[in-house]
Design a binder for these strands. Structure first.
Length: 801
RNA sequence: GCGGGCGUGGUGGAAUUGGCAAACACGUUGGUCUUAGGAGCCAAUGCUUCGGCUUAUGGGUUCGAGUCCCUUCGCCCGCACCA
């Protein structure tokens, strides 16, 4: 009988669907396990071979947990708002809602073909009004708590998508999505105050089990730095506050620099002798795109503000003030004190503009380069700080600044507040109206969801306004506060809105009175294992942690953190080792693979291809090895013989393999788990028979990886019920080790032979075995044994002269 | 520049965390069965002058190093004038 994967897979997929085999139970007395994968964006291209890798991995975890007796929630849904759908809809003159439905139908069909054990009753779609009602509700809570606010500011604007981007969406100065040019534009935008959570987003990482690289990326992205704000005087009589992480070098501050956009320049207008030059520089800086401004190794440019000087608070010295675009208006106070002797950028600028360079930390050679080391070196040229270490000097100068009202300790972050509005159609409408009298007013929660109105022409406008602004009937409304005339907000939310809380909705997807019931939230929280792409580390993952913490603060969710454990998978590359892309022509279509080899082989291969956390190239030949393994597995039916126990020859191998597969699944080592099963099946074929007990264990081990074939074989072998309802096999630790082992014998660190001894043999017994070996005896003859190292079950190393 | 990761056969990759390097697979070669083989089965497969030598490179620590420490070279990812 042949392994007819097509018939088998169809049969069991239909059975699972019909019987709702993998629906999470509502029985809250059972121990729960919540496994989560990032829900896909249902693009028009359909599923990619990259999708099944993380999905299969957590499917394996979920299936194993079910066999271990857990009530498992393993849900899926679609993150369907967003630009690609809208762009496709415009190009093909179909409404984005229609496109979304088509794409989701295709994705669902493809996902089901993979045999993933999702709970299909809990499927969600972020574009459904019943879903985005709660996205809007959360926004209103943020608004009511002062964490959503509207602000006129310079934002990143993609000239090609005609839309505002978050900092996280600008990569190397261009649009993350379309690689279009990004320019700065001053616009009034909705902002979310994620910076208020900066400390907690860093500190609470200690309470969760995330892989290290995720933690470090988030910490670096938030970019907390400790320093001081220092108040400089000016010859204008006003103050200019700067932020520095090196207040210890205050005596070495020989000039100051302000960002070109700094508003103080206006105030000093009449005193600046070269005002025209200053304005010209500022305008030139504003015209530069982000890409130009961040270009590598760029020459420092700048203009001195003639006629105005800064006054160093510590010694009263007057120092020049420059404007330069190497100082960012958005970080710190938008102005710095420059210490060229101890900062590379200031050094470069000072050399070019001929500023003074005063060494205040001894230990370097400042005629050659800035000395930036904080560990070694003692303070010099710094009056009361002289002789102190950098650390001590920081402490002392901050004390001095505080006592004299000239500054204080300060913590700064690279993280900015989250630009939350988009001028596009296909997103959640922001549920706010603007009233001349009352300002920005939340619409009543009873009016949620605020549905996206139908619109014939949803192309983005050239003036940067949302397409919704064209719907004057919709825009003009009454103020919920005073009843007077008011206008609706026409911007929509970014794609990151709906995905910032979707994992909560799975817990109770049909609830109409809350985003999920208290009971469901209590039972299922937190997510036990969340796997997703590294590319979301500083986007979705950070955003959703922020929303979750806010929901925790207002008493909606029961945990401070959403995800107890976070792992990340590597990409599947093309056969050429490059990222798969249409233009490279190296794309592998999962439908073709399933058609040729079946879903079980595809699943096995994607797990076997390499280290789960690393990128791995697709190989159209290697996959055959996995197909062969499943063919051989199916062939075991022909070797089946009676026997309710393990056969003596294979007993230890079975115990070891159960232990290995069980452990490897928990530690993401799916590739070695499969290697272990392959090694086991090779031994079974050597023996040419398999007992019923052995078959039952083998099938259950393989089931999470290859669910269809194992279900079919379970039935054909006549085991009771479905394998999906069986129990995970256990093992006996004492049977994982053989009684007799072969160990290596080294002489002076070099491998010289092997001996066979009892696993628990002591050193004397091992040496006896060495003596009994002719070859080893010859090696040792005439030599004096100086020392013997014996590690039980591993090695004997004899040091002999 | 800063941060993180990596470098093992012809290929993808293993190695109980300092204890027999190359598990498992792909590929290749030979054999077998076949009208046929892009199927199955069996065998071989790091290099070797058969003494040995091998984990990018050179050094170190150790009885013992792919694993730990330092040098050099190379690759990938993230951030990027954050004061």
């Amino acid at each position: 009988m042949d392994y007819n994967f097509k018939a088998i897979e169809k049969k069991w997929q239909e059975t699972w669907d019909r019987e709702k085999t993998f629906a999470a139970k509502n029985d809250r007395s059972l121990p729960k396990y919540y496994a989560l994968v990032e829900f896909p964006y249902p693009s028009g291209a359909g599923l990619h071979v990259g999708h099944p890798r993380p999905y299969t991995a957590l499917d394996i975890v979920s299936r194993k947990k079910r066999l271990e007796g857990y009530n498992v929630l393993f849900p899926i849904g679609y993150d369907a708002f967003g630009l690609p759908t809208e762009n496709y809809a415009m190009k093909n003159h179909i409404h984005p809602a229609v496109v979304t439905k088509q794409n989701i139908d295709r994705f669902r069909k493809q996902l089901k073909m993979l045999g993933l054990s999702f709970d299909w009753d809990r499927e969600i779609n972020t574009t459904e009004p019943s879903y985005y009602k709660w996205t809007q509700w959360i926004f209103l809570q943020l608004f009511k708590h002062g964490l959503a606010y509207k602000k006129e500011m310079a934002v990143n604007f993609c000239t090609s998508c005609k839309v505002v981007l978050a900092n996280e969406e600008v990569v190397n100065g261009v649009c993350e999505r379309c690689h279009g040019e990004v320019v700065r534009k001053v616009k009034s935008q909705w902002m979310l105050a994620i910076t208020k959570y900066a400390d907690r987003l860093i500190d609470d990482l200690d309470t969760v089990d995330y892989i290290e690289r995720v933690k470090t990326s988030q910490i670096n992205w938030i970019g907390r730095s400790y320093g001081a704000e220092v108040t400089f005087g000016t010859t204008q009589g006003d103050d200019l506050v700067v932020f520095t992480t090196r207040p210890d070098t205050l005596f070495g501050a020989t000039y100051m620099v302000m960002a070109p956009e700094h508003e103080r320049i206006e105030a000093w207008k009449d005193s600046i002798e070269n005002y025209d030059e200053v304005v010209a520089y500022r305008e030139a800086a504003a015209r530069k795109s982000d890409l130009e401004r961040t270009e590598l190794n760029k020459d420092k440019t700048g203009v001195e503000l003639k006629g105005v000087k800064g006054i160093n608070p510590v010694n009263g010295k007057q120092i020049p003030i420059y404007i330069s675009d190497y100082v960012l208006s958005t970080y710190g106070t938008g102005a710095i004190m420059a210490v060229p002797a101890h900062d590379d950028r200031d050094y470069e600028f000072a050399k070019k503009f001929g500023c003074d360079i005063i060494e205040v930390v001894a230990g370097g050679d400042i005629s050659d380069a800035a000395f930036t080391d904080c560990e070694t070196g003692a303070m010099t040229n710094s009056e009361f700080l002289n002789g102190l270490s950098v650390e001590e000097a920081k402490k002392k100068i901050i004390e001095w600044l505080t006592e004299n009202g000239k500054g204080h300790q300060k913590i700064n972050y690279k993280l900015r507040d989250w630009v939350f509005s988009r001028q596009r159609y296909w997103g959640e409408p922001i549920p706010i109206v603007h009233c001349e009298k009352c300002g920005y007013v939340a619409i009543p929660e009873s009016e949620l969801p605020l549905e996206l109105p139908p619109l014939a022409d949803y192309e983005p406008t050239d003036n940067g306004e949302s397409p919704l602004s064209k719907l004057t009937d919709w825009v003009n409304t009454t103020c919920p506060c005073c009843g007077g005339p008011a206008e609706r907000e026409t911007d929509t939310m970014p794609q990151w809105g709906g995905s910032s809380w979707y994992y909560l909705r799975y817990m109770d997807p049909d609830n109409n009175d809350a985003l999920a019931s208290k009971e469901a939230l209590e039972y299922w929280s937190p997510i036990d294992w969340y796997n997703g792409g590294m590319e979301h580390t500083t986007l979705h993952l950070l955003y959703s942690r922020f929303w979750h913490k806010f929901l925790y603060d207002i008493g909606v969710v029961p945990t401070n953190e959403p995800y107890a454990k976070r792992t990340s998978h590597g990409m599947i590359l093309g056969e050429d080792g490059e990222k798969m892309s249409k233009s490279r022509g190296n794309v592998v279509n999962p439908d073709d693979v399933i058609n040729e080899y079946g879903a079980d082989t595809m699943r096995m291969y994607e797990m076997f291809v390499g280290d789960f956390e690393k990128a791995a190239p697709w190989s159209s030949t290697s996959i055959k090895g996995c197909k062969r393994f499943l063919d051989r597995s199916f062939g075991l039916l022909g070797l089946l013989c009676d026997g309710a126990e393990y056969s003596p020859e294979l007993e230890n191998d079975f115990h070891r393999t159960v232990k290995k597969v069980s452990g490897d699944i928990e530690t993401l080592k799916f590739n070695t788990a499969i290697a272990g099963m392959m090694a086991l099946i090779n031994k079974i074929y050597d023996k040419k028979s398999i007992t019923r007990k052995e078959m039952s264990v083998f099938l259950r081990l393989l089931n999470p990886f290859a669910p269809h074939i194992t279900e079919e074989m379970w039935e054909l072998a006549g085991f009771e019920g479905q394998i999906a309802h069986s129990v995970w096999p256990d093992y006996d630790e004492s049977k994982c080790v053989d009684n007799v082992v072969e160990i290596a014998v080294q002489i002076n660190g070099k491998l010289k032979g092997r001996i066979t001894v009892a696993a628990d043999a002591d050193q004397d017994a091992a040496m006896e075995a060495v003596e009994a070996d002719d070859k080893l005896k010859a090696e040792l003859s005439g030599k004096n044994i100086v020392k013997t190292i014996y590690v039980k079950g591993k090695i004997v190393n004899i040091v002999a002269k």
